[in-house]
Simulated assay, not measured.
Amino acid sequence: MIVVTRLNDSQFAINPDLIERIHASPDTTLVMVDGAKFIVTESLEDVIEKIARFRAHVISLAYLTEDSQYSSGARTLEIVGGPHAIAHVIEPGSTVPSRPRRI
């Protein structure tokens, strides 16, 4: 989540993955994938920087180990087995078989 400021100076957190586009004419407007619009005081460049820092933070958390001083006891990332797991690995350069088309 990133924290942005409304025109009345109240702050709120928003999921940057749900932002469809950002307009800056003249106020910065966040247009969400569901069509909701939020006008914020931050500039277009500031919002983009907040999104980049948020994503970098998420990636850095994925690389932390349990030995790290920053570890919060979260599990490390791993491949999950079960019915949705990949049954085999496709070798580089090989083709992936396609399903027959229904006409």
Rank of each mutant, 00 (worst) to 15 (best):
M1R: 01
M1W: 00
I2E: 02
V4R: 03
T5G: 06
T5I: 06
T5R: 09
L7V: 10
N8G: 04
I14G: 01
N15G: 02
N15Y: 02
P16A: 03
P16G: 04
D17S: 09
D17C: 06
D17P: 01
L18D: 07
L18M: 07
I19Q: 04
I22D: 05
P26D: 05
V31A: 14
V33Q: 13
D34Y: 06
K37S: 07
K37T: 08
F38R: 03
I39Q: 11
T41I: 12
L44Y: 15
L44H: 14
E45D: 13
D46V: 11
V47S: 07
V47W: 09
V47I: 15
E49Q: 15
R55K: 15
I59S: 11
I59A: 13
I59K: 14
A62C: 03
L64K: 10
T65D: 03
T65F: 00
E66A: 08
D67V: 04
D67H: 07
D67W: 04
D67R: 10
S68D: 12
S68Y: 08
Q69L: 14
Y70R: 12
S71V: 05
S71M: 03
S72K: 10
S72C: 03
S72T: 10
G73E: 01
A74H: 09
A74D: 06
R75V: 01
R75P: 02
L77I: 11
L77K: 05
L77A: 08
L77G: 02
E78M: 11
E78A: 14
G82E: 02
G82T: 04
H84R: 06
A85L: 01
H88L: 07
H88I: 07
H88D: 07
H88T: 12
P92T: 13
T95L: 15
P97T: 09
R99Q: 07
R99K: 12
P100S: 09
R101M: 07
R102N: 08
